[in-house]
Design a protein around this nucleic acid. Structure first.
Length: 121
DNA sequence: CATACGATCCGCCAAA
DNA sequence: GGTTTGGCGGATCGTA
């Protein structure tokens, strides 16, 4: 069990099914057209409804979900950052790093280190 | 850091 | 005639 506890994310909307599916399939290509097909909407309508009901854009939400997953893997496995990236759907460790730093505020390595040894943060 | 190019996002507006 | 849809265009973002 990692330190990240995600909200149910079920808002009763039509995304109550899509969001959990995305979280279970982070390794896939989750481009906008693919999400739209999955939700049976046009890309335009998905973008609009998603922003209204979820509060962020589809691509940002996916990036956030991937980073959350990466945080968990960094905490509870010894996988290299390279492998964590592959495991969370990022095309490379540099792409993971980019999003990780923006969202979490520290690098993947620093996160793992500080989580395991808070005194050496 | 610079470049370049595909992807995303969102205002606009005709159509349903 | 108010509301929702979805294609288009282009500014912006992301990634190689």
């Amino acid at each position: 069990m990692c330190s990240i506890h995600q909200e149910p994310a079920s808002d009763g909307s039509s995304f109550g099914l899509l969001l959990p599916w995305l979280e279970q399939n982070l390794k896939r290509d989750l481009s906008l057209p693919i999400m739209a097909r999955r939700a049976a909407m046009s890309t335009r309508t998905l973008s609009r409804r998603f922003l209204e009901q979820v509060g962020t854009t589809p691509a940002r939400w996916v990036a956030g979900a991937r980073v959350r997953r990466a945080q968990c893997l960094l905490e509870e496995t010894d996988l290299s950052v390279e492998r964590v990236a592959a495991e969370t759907g990022f095309q490379s460790s540099s792409v993971l790093r980019e999003h990780f730093v923006r969202i979490v505020g520290t690098s993947p390595q620093a996160w793992r280190r500080s989580f395991r040894d808070p005194l050496r943060a």
